[in-house]
Amino acid sequence: MILQGKGGVGKSLAASVLCQYLIERGREITAFDTDPINHTLAGYKDLPVKELQLLQGDDIDRRRFDQLIEEILTASGDVVVDNGAATFVPLSSYLKENQTVDFLESSGMRVLIHTVITGGQGMKDTADGLVSLASHFTVRLVVWLNRYFGEIATDNKTFEEFKAYKQHRDQIAALIHVPLKSAQTFGRDLEELFSRHQTFAAVLAGETLPVLPVMTRQRLKIWWHEMCQELDLAGLTDAEYAENTEKTE
């Protein structure tokens, strides 16, 4: 599950990248887009995404979270849930109130909560979101460090020196550093790729129209390779995760 109360920090980017990575590693996945406002993940036609409408009028219908859990339990393979900022509080409350994480794990599922920390103006809010998740859930957390809006540092302290990290690092299964490249080349190429909801696999195979220029594809290939290396180091697949967890413990 990708959870973060701050909007526009890269949750759907993390969700789409995670889906593509798992598929590339030969995993069977089902993804859910529960964002009631921005259905970004559902816009990827090459990904197996189900859009789940959680709004009833202007309010979140918490009973529809029951449907989400039913769908998760009956899904095959890995499940990725992209959650919008608007449903962060109600979904977090639902998970806690219904002891949903414990229930899913007792049903044989391994639950990881992914959250995004960003630099710039959103740094404090995203760090507070991490603290909130760590305080409410005992499940392992995967933290994505997104420096697109600025360095994740304050008073010459890196994220690993932040109080939020030090207090909860036993819960953090992995830190994923989103590759940061030149904004004028890599940044622009990535923005256009994400805005078109195209997958790296399709673009790099020349399956999209129009076919992108060769250097654009080269830059996307470099970024995607580095991103996959980060995810490999995180050990998100069962065998790798178990090995990394054992080493940590």
Rank of each mutant, 00 (worst) to 15 (best):
L41Y: 02
T199I: 12
R25L: 06
E24Y: 05
K163F: 11
D59G: 09
E105Y: 10
D125G: 15
I37S: 14
K166Q: 15
F194G: 03
L233Y: 08
Q121H: 13
P210I: 10
G57W: 05
L175Y: 07
V17I: 15
F88G: 02
L204I: 03
T237K: 14
T158K: 14
A183V: 13
T185H: 10
V80D: 06
R25M: 08
D33Y: 04
E51Q: 12
F65Y: 08
E249A: 15
F200C: 11
L13H: 04
Y148N: 06
E97D: 15
A201C: 03
T237R: 14
A234D: 02
F137V: 02
A201I: 03
L145E: 00
A153W: 05
P48V: 06
A164R: 01
Q56C: 12
R217Y: 03
D33F: 04
D128Q: 14
E226P: 03
L236Q: 06
F149W: 10
I222N: 08
H177N: 13
K50P: 01
G122L: 01
G77V: 11
Q67T: 15
L47W: 04
A239R: 11
S16W: 02
G43R: 07
L18G: 03
L130G: 02
L130W: 06
A42L: 09
N38P: 04
L212C: 03
T154K: 13
E226T: 09
P213T: 13
E207Y: 01
L3T: 04
E192A: 11
N244C: 08
A42K: 01
L209F: 13
T34M: 12
E161H: 11
K181D: 07
D155M: 10
L236F: 06
G129W: 00
R217P: 08
G8F: 02
G84P: 08
N146Y: 13
H168C: 06
H136P: 00
V139G: 01
F162S: 00
K124N: 06
A14H: 04
L73S: 10
E249V: 14
R188W: 09
L130Y: 12
D33W: 02
W223K: 09
N83Y: 05
W223A: 07
A242F: 12
E97N: 13
I113F: 07
A75M: 08
L130M: 11
G8Y: 06
E161M: 13
E207G: 01
I152P: 06
K96N: 07
E240A: 15
K45D: 05
V49D: 00
H39S: 14
A234H: 05
Y148K: 09
V142Y: 03
A75H: 00
D189R: 04
S135K: 12
I113Y: 00
R25H: 11
S76N: 10
G108R: 00
L204E: 08
R64K: 14
L193Q: 02
L233E: 07
